[in-house]
């Protein structure tokens, strides 16, 4: 019984974590069809920016988080405006360019000496509470609440605001959106900025739980992609549902098979999805486009 509750609690927290990591990727791919392989790099760089604000310049913790998220949004917008926009529509170049950006950032950070145990962010709230006899860090509760709130906010944002609706319009049919007076290039920049900010937000919420290390960037990218493929590339509600699925699957394997298999599950999920339903479990019907 205890283990069941534990699975339930940690499964939910882990699912929300995955959703946080994946939402930015899903948003960018959904609107501009650019697979942002620099997603993990943006995640990590946000952590370092927040750390620099906090430890180097002594800014207030919460302020430094807000600042770093804004900076990362700006970085994302600049990357799109000056680099990715030039290769828009050329699939091979898009993939290679974003991959190169991600690598340059991550390996640059590694070279710059950002490794080891010294780079940590403090948790928001210290302490532990017991839910039905299971100990949970308060910070994880914050993550859970913030993540759920974010998903709700995104839903409202994409359904009721002008920018959100424009983004959805672009995701569905770019040409039609162009005819309705939506500037697709500008919206793609906005989407990229939003996606980067989501990556940054995820970093701000999740990094206090561990050290800031460069490898996390690659992990985040893998998990984000796994979640997005299982949920259907480009559909962000699908990504949330897929995060639940993979999150619980990972926790279950961790409990019953051991930690080693945790990352295997993510890749297995991708492969199985690609074989059975390439458009993703919750993706829209895209027979003609995706499957050759």
């Amino acid at each position: 019984m205890d283990i069941l509750i534990e699975i339930l609690i940690y499964g939910s927290i882990h699912s929300i974590t995955l959703a946080l990591m994946a939402l930015g990727f899903a948003l960018v791919y959904g609107t501009s069809r650019v697979p942002n392989f620099a997603h993990g790099a943006l995640y990590i760089i946000c952590g370092f920016i927040a750390w620099s604000f906090l430890k180097k310049w002594g800014v207030n913790y919460y302020l430094s988080i807000v600042l770093s998220i804004m900076v990362i949004g700006l970085i994302g917008a600049l990357i799109y405006q000056f680099i990715l926009i030039r290769v828009r529509g050329m699939a091979i170049s898009e993939i290679i360019a974003s991959y190169a950006i991600g690598l340059a950032i991550l390996e640059g950070l590694r070279w710059g000496g950002f490794k080891g145990m010294t780079y940590t962010l403090p948790t928001f709230i210290q302490g532990t509470i017991f839910i039905a006899g299971v100990p949970v860090d308060l910070h994880r509760i914050v993550v859970l609440i913030c993540g759920a709130a974010l998903v709700g906010f995104l839903w409202v944002f994409t359904h009721f605001t002008r920018i959100g609706l424009a983004l959805r319009g672009m995701a569905q049919d770019e040409r039609a959106a162009l005819m309705l007076g939506i500037d697709s290039d500008r919206m793609a920049v906005v989407a990229m900025a939003f996606g980067s900010m989501l990556a940054g937000l995820a970093a701000a919420l999740l990094l206090p739980l561990g050290n800031i290390v460069v490898e996390t960037g690659y992990n985040v990218l893998i998990l984000a992609i796994a979640v997005c493929i299982v949920g259907g590339l480009g559909s962000w509600m699908g990504a949330v549902l897929a995060a639940l699925l993979i999150g619980f699957a990972q926790i279950l394997t961790e409990v019953y098979l051991g930690t080693h298999f945790k990352s295997v599950i993510a890749l297995l999920a991708i492969i199985v999805t690609l074989i059975l339903r390439p458009s993703g479990l919750f993706g829209r019907q895209k027979e003609l486009e995706e499957r050759v």
Partner: peptide, 15 residues
């Protein structure tokens, strides 16, 4: 990922 078009091959080879 071979029967599929798009970014899947890139993603899987990366992973």
């Amino acid at each position: 990922c071979l029967p599929l078009r798009g970014v899947y091959f890139a993603i899987v080879t990366l992973m």
